[in-house]
Design a protein around this nucleic acid. Sequence first.
DNA 1: CACGGACTACCGGTATACCGGTACCAACAA
DNA 2: TTGTTGGTACCGGTATACCGGTAGTCCGTG
Lengths: 218, 218
Amino acid sequence: MKLNIVLADDHQMFRHALRALLEKEPNLNVVAEAADGEALLRIIGEQAVDIVCIDIGMPGMNGIEATRRLLALRPDIRVIGLSAYADRQFVIDLLNAGALGYVTKAEASEELLRAIHHVQQGRTYLCPDVSGAVASALRFDTDLRASAHQLTARERQVLQLIAEGHTSARIAERLHIAASTVEVHRRNIMRKLGLHNVAELTRYAIHSGISPVVDEGL
Amino acid sequence: MKLNIVLADDHQMFRHALRALLEKEPNLNVVAEAADGEALLRIIGEQAVDIVCIDIGMPGMNGIEATRRLLALRPDIRVIGLSAYADRQFVIDLLNAGALGYVTKAEASEELLRAIHHVQQGRTYLCPDVSGAVASALRFDTDLRASAHQLTARERQVLQLIAEGHTSARIAERLHIAASTVEVHRRNIMRKLGLHNVAELTRYAIHSGISPVVDEGL
DNA sequence: CACGGACTACCGGTATACCGGTACCAACAA
DNA sequence: TTGTTGGTACCGGTATACCGGTAGTCCGTG
């Protein structure tokens, strides 16, 4: 029985390339690709999926948020996070969201295959440079979780869209809520974080990993 | 006769995956991979290379600098730039450095194959979203090549203060000029970069190194 | 059950950003 | 000379951010 895999990454080129690589493995079957979180959720509602490899740094709904929602719908799916960075906060947030694996793109592709093998059996797998970062975090800072969860899921979502340069009106359209509601989220975010303008919010979003450093179409 | 290709990208996983994809083409032969600019220059000194696909966003020596040095040593090699973003400045800088192609990772992998085909014949190739960005720049400014979109020292200074979350009034105080002047700088910066709000300016500042990722207040 | 948290939504108001234009001056280049 | 670039400064106008309050629903917990 082949494993059904879905790839989620905003870079089509990366998805295609990764598909070519994974399909060289006889027991792996890439059944679908998604360019963003919305597409991913649509896909897992439509077909049988065993494992999802998801990029953390996607615009719109990011990988962590997407993981949270995906597992709420289909808790049986195994999620492996992919990221350009071995950022502690990323790893912690993703594991809290329910993912089983975490591999950086700087690692060899064999690491991803190893991760797939592990999570398929329900085990956790962190690639070497990530597990090192997490271990040091656990030694020095025991309450990382608290700071990571000051913001609610909805607030993180709004924050990411603000940091991507959208106005409250556009964010409201995107989330299918009223602009006034977005304004409320905006103020609550600023109050919780002690920030007072878009520049500071953007810096926070990038630094905390809610928003990727780079954006498309600049 | 097969085309000898070298891949340069700091993400090993991306390199491996891209290799798997390119090697499905019968006339392409990936002869080497490089994780940074230094390794790339070493490789092209050692073996026959026709085409180099190089990532712009590599740490250390970036793709543009590496392209410049590579072509100084081996002007016959065709260079294709790969990037996560369709940043005008990157495109211009890379073309000035002597590259023939530019493809974003958001595009389909077919775009890369198309670019390889074009540059092999000595022709230029820009993928659609990139040529769109360049075209929009041409509408505003006819003289692109002469570093038209470089910011002046004063503008960089203003941009940094904007990205730190200051208002135009505060920036004016800090620089001992009128707020109206700061507004002019602000608009000129946005026009040059093709950006339209503080969030995008902040991202650009962080991304371009004008502003550090971390700030005291955060 | 009552309570709080999260999310939703609206009201009003002020501050600031954003966009367009014009203008003067100094330094420098064609 | 004339033209160009960078820096300075102001005008008017609209859009959006930012700040304060109130209030309804839903949902999970004590």
